[in-house]
Design a protein around this nucleic acid. Structure first.
Length: 684
DNA sequence: CCTCCCACGTAAACTCACTC
DNA sequence: GAGTGAGTTTACGTGGGAGG
């Protein structure tokens, strides 16, 4: 043990080292250096583990000035490292069973029998038995709980911290300044580096998961509000004042680990050990892998408890360079091997044909442009990127308790299965066709982004106790929800079109019925928080379990092609053209040939929605028996039959014909006069 | 025993591209 | 030009090992 531990006093002139080429630390130099370190700790120039650059510069200058050296800062850092090693040696010894640190005697104490038995087993420990360590209290202040990089090392949340806390209490008896130095809280913003503990990671991942569940993560990142909320929650939890940037940086770090682990798991011979939270493989596989890429060495040793959470958080973020064996392959019948409890990461542009195998408890991550057909995935976390096609029987079996995250521009067609208790997060511009979900979503939480099209019979069963959050600019056509939403809470954003919603519901956020709405269908709907830009028009045809049949706003168009919505999956190729850029509220100005790409894309997207609407109307017409010739379907048919009407004109016509009187008059007109009449009315 | 150097991991800061 | 997100660079920590 160093001389400094023997209690040498400052003032030893012999300490002056005339040879500046190599440091030769004397007790007085050590003592002075410790004083400098303590001084900067007390000034707050040390984070949980790091002295600031200015602190090091200042200490070097003062040390050289005191002893007449020209040491580089690295010399002091080396000594600092040496002190740290000594600190942990003492700490480890004192934490042994039967041993304790005596702060008054500055030594490690234990009864003789304990010493003898321990020294017999550990001869090297003899040195600690009668040695004084007067500087240990100083080292406790300087090093506190901090070790290494801190992330997977000792912290206030780890085993072993208790001793340090006790040591700090001991120190309080000797120094009034020690309190607060090792308070185990994350550093303040003035401090340069953060000591991320496993507990902090865990809390952070939990906060991210919460935001994911709320639908506040689109693509690779969280919304601005989500970052703010997470920072606030995190700061409240740990009593710190981090900004969003700190959490974003940590998110980047965790994401990199997540990607690397995925890369490993994509290699042959590797698997995820849920108990250890580690990637596991036999030694030969590890050695071969590490030889090729040294960076994977880390994952052989360290556990990554945050990985399972990051699987959900990062769901669709499989990096382009992550070339797992599963990427860009076709999965035909019986080609897929079951991977129960496994984690399946799938890149872009895959074809999943029928009769692939179950993945109970698995995490399934898919990139963009994959095609899924029938397959059970119970208890699976199902993360789906954008522009995928879900055809019939995509999900053949129920997904109870599953978390289903679906990003933008996916198509969900009929005969998918129930998702009771599921969390359903939907991005924008998805197309939900008939029978997408044919079973109930009891207790489900439904988050729906903007610009989705919900066609007929999207949800054919009740959603009791569900929470339905709906963003702006969605189209809910007739029979979207055919069953009541008893006790449901419905949050609805701006500019949605609702037809036909049954049941006893609470409408929050403005989806109120019109003042003259006929409620005789039996439902008891209550409204709160009146909103804007909603049009609920006339009642047309009450049905069982329905309360209203409300006309829709600008969702009618020329029928482009007859389809059988019951049997034909709506895989319209036009949907591929929908812009993947961020969606904004679009103006309602007429389209021109010179309009920007975004506007054109919007119109194309609208066109798709209109086509779906046409299909829905056709289906509706076939199903419902009308007493007279008037129906929304008939109006649409007649409107679509008019030649040379562009989409905008049709939309304007829809607006105009929302009035039933006008619509009846329109139908009553001779076919050759309808266009002229419409144009005249619209111009006026 | 001690210094010095190296490789590597991490957090924070920085830069750039993009959108509005 | 401001705001934002993604990717890159920089600064600083660590442990291990060679060598005096």
């Amino acid at each position: 043990m160093d001389q400094v531990m023997q209690g040498n006093e400052i003032g030893d002139d012999s300490s002056i080292n005339l040879d500046n080429s190599r440091a030769n630390w004397t007790p007085s130099q050590d003592q002075y250096f410790l004083e400098l370190l303590l001084s900067h700790v007390h000034k707050g120039n040390k984070t949980g583990k790091v002295f600031t650059r200015l602190a090091w510069a200042d200490m070097t200058e003062q040390f050289n000035s005191k002893f007449g050296f020209k040491y580089d800062v690295d010399v002091l850092k080396n000594r600092y490292k040496r002190f740290k090693k000594q600190y942990y040696e003492i700490k480890a010894m004192a934490s042994q069973n039967g041993f304790q640190w005596d702060g008054r005697l500055n030594t490690i104490t234990a009864n003789d029998k304990t010493w003898e038995e321990y020294i017999k087993a550990h001869p090297d420990a003899q040195v600690f038995r009668k040695k004084l360590f007067p500087c240990y209290n100083d080292l406790c202040i300087i090093y506190g709980h901090t070790v290494a990089d801190g992330r997977y090392s000792l912290s206030c949340f780890d085993e072993g911290f208790e001793y340090e806390e006790n040591a700090s209490k001991e120190l309080d008896d000797h120094t009034s300044t020690s309190k607060g130095v090792d308070d185990q809280t994350p550093p303040t913003p003035s401090q340069s580096k953060i000591d991320w503990s496993p507990m902090m990671d865990r809390v952070f991942v939990e906060l991210m998961l919460d935001q994911v569940r709320k639908g506040n993560k689109a693509g690779r990142t969280f919304t601005r509000q989500a970052w703010g909320d997470m920072a606030e929650s995190f700061n409240n939890r740990f009593g710190c004042h981090y900004g969003k940037v700190v959490l974003k940086n940590r998110f980047n770090v965790l994401s990199r680990h997540y990607s690397s682990i995925n890369e490993l798991l994509g290699k042959e011979g590797f698997s995820w050990d849920k108990a250890q939270h580690k990637v596991v493989a036999n030694d030969q596989v590890w050695q071969k892998c590490i030889r090729v890429n040294h960076k994977f060495r880390l994952y052989r040793i360290k556990s990554m408890p945050f990985y399972s959470g990051m699987c959900i958080v990062c769901r669709d973020e499989a990096p382009a360079d992550c070339k797992s064996i599963l990427e860009r392959k076709s999965y035909g019948n019986k080609n897929s091997t079951p991977d129960p409890n496994g984690s399946l990461h799938i890149g872009s542009e895959n074809n999943f044909i029928g009769d692939t195998q179950p993945l109970p408890y698995a995490s399934l991550h898919t990139g963009d442009g994959s095609n899924f057909t029938k397959e059970p995935l119970p208890d699976t976390a199902f993360h789906v990127g954008g522009e995928n096609s879900f055809t019939r029987d995509t999900i053949y079996q129920p997904l109870p308790y599953a978390a289903l995250h679906i990003d933008d521009e996916n198509r969900l067609t009929r005969d998918t299965q129930p998702l009771p208790n599921a969390i359903l997060n939907l991005g924008g511009e998805n197309n939900f066709t008939r029978d997408t979900i044919i079973q109930p979503l009891h207790n489900a939480v439904w988050h729906v982004g903007g610009e989705n099209s919900f066609i007929r019979d999207t949800i054919t069963q009740p959603l009791p106790n569900a929470t339905l959050d709906i963003g702006g600019e969605n189209n809910f056509t007739r029979d979207t929800i055919t069953e009541p939403l008893q006790n449901a809470t419905l949050h609805i954003g701006g500019e949605n079109n609702f037809t036909f919603i049954g049941g006893e519901n609470n409408f929050i956020g403005g989806a109120q019925p019109p003042a003259n709405a006929d409620n005789e269908g039996g439902g008891k709907n209550s409204t709160r928080d009146e909103g804007i830009e909603r049009i609920f028009t006339r009642k047309t045809q009450p049905q069982k379990n329905s309360t209203r049949d409300e006309g829709s706003e600008r969702i009618f168009t020329r029928k482009t092609q007859p389809q059988n919505a019951d049997k034909e999956p709506l895989l319209l190729s036009a949907g591929k053209n929908i812009s993947r850029q961020k969606k904004r509220h679009q103006t309602k100005a007429p389209a021109t040939l010179n309009e920007p790409k975004k506007a054109r894309n919007y119109n194309e997207g609208m066109s798709v929605a209109l086509k779906h609407m046409a299909v829905a109307v056709t289906s509706l017409t076939n199903k419902t028996k009308k007493e007279d010739n008037f129906s929304v379907g008939n109006v649409m048919k007649v409107l679509q039959a008019i030649p040379d009407l562009d989409d905008d004109l049709i939309l304007d016509a829809c607006d105009f014909l929302e009035d039933e009187k006008r619509a009846r008059l329109f139908l009553a007109l001779p076919a050759n006069l309808r266009k002229k009449w419409l144009l005249r009315k619209l111009r006026s």
